[in-house]
Design a protein around this nucleic acid. Structure first.
Ligand SMILES: [Zn+2]
Ligand SMILES: [Zn+2]
Ligand SMILES: [Zn+2]
Ligand SMILES: [Zn+2]
Lengths: 149, 149
DNA sequence: GGCATGGATGTAATGTTATAACATCGCCCT
DNA sequence: AGGGCGATGTTATAACATTACATCCATGCC
């Protein structure tokens, strides 16, 4: 895992990925991803909206939800369901299933890929007659910073 | 696992558990759990509210949210975050972490306990410096019924 | 050029999910 | 009787998300 990849680099990669796939990486989408990256911790849609509004007073909920739809659809960002926040994807090229560790104390989010967990998971699912579908799994897990307290 | 334990039995067990723990299993709480059990598939808070309202016209959102808070707090029901539904707990005595398999097609929910998955999970978390906190893990997984389609 | 096409955005309204705040009731205890 | 306290009633509002339709603009085709 690249430790602390800078926002600028991730943005570059995202732009490249969009070009490669024939997707329009428009200013709004870019800006939303950038805000997510700069923030680091995951943002609520309406916080994002407030930030966008500061630069673009006409922005409304659809403005930001559309950008978020685009980003999540193409795995450039992810939605954390349990607290309705959005976070930039930290994987170089997100195709495999990810675990999202969500700290209940500080809401920090860590994206993690772990083969052995996914294997165990798939085995258990198969035993129950199910089949893994959504590659995004949220886990409540206290982060290193909050572990002591 | 008890196959298809009847609502009545689960209600009995819930009542007993509350008595044992000195908790008030009031009519509203009972009724909400019963509705969840009868429905089987998980209900939205406002659907539940509509059902309650039919018998008790004065019911309002807090009426049902309070009952749900109680039930989830004491593990008699669970909230499925990804689609904001609530489901009755199917475990005889829910203390260990559970996996919740949520079918993306039909929204059916299966509660599953699996030691090996949880072990793999805890190991991966520990390696990342985290610590499992929330014992409830949602997984998107196509259910046996929907697997063919 | 004229003009259909389709994706992206603007705009207004609304739908859905959840909580805050405060009043009241009923029960247990003294 | 009076106090404490958990449960409930009641009103309002906060927070999260979508629908629906108008407009714009780049692209490709006649
Ligand atoms: Zn990712
Ligand atoms: Zn933390
Ligand atoms: Zn359970
Ligand atoms: Zn299904």
């Amino acid at each position: 895992m690249p430790p602390n990849t800078s926002p600028a680099v991730v943005l570059e990669r995202a732009a490249a990925a969009c070009t490669a796939r024939g997707l329009a990486f428009t200013p709004i989408r870019q800006r939303v991803l950038q805000l997510l990256l700069e923030h680091g911790k995951g943002l609520k849609a309406y916080d994002l909206l407030a930030l966008i509004k500061a630069e673009q007073p006409g922005a409304t909920p659809p403005t930001v939800y559309r950008a978020l739809d685009f980003l999540t659809e193409h795995h450039l960002a992810h939605k954390i369901e349990r607290n309705a926040t959005f976070v930039a994807c930290t994987q170089e090229n997100h195709v495999e299933p990810s675990l999202f560790l969500v700290c209940p104390k500080c809401s920090a989010i860590t994206e993690l890929q772990d083969r052995s967990v996914m294997q165990a998971l798939c085995r258990a699912l198969a035993a129950a007659g199910h089949q893994l579908d959504n590659p995004e799994v949220e886990i409540g897990a206290t982060c290193p910073n909050c572990k002591g307290s």
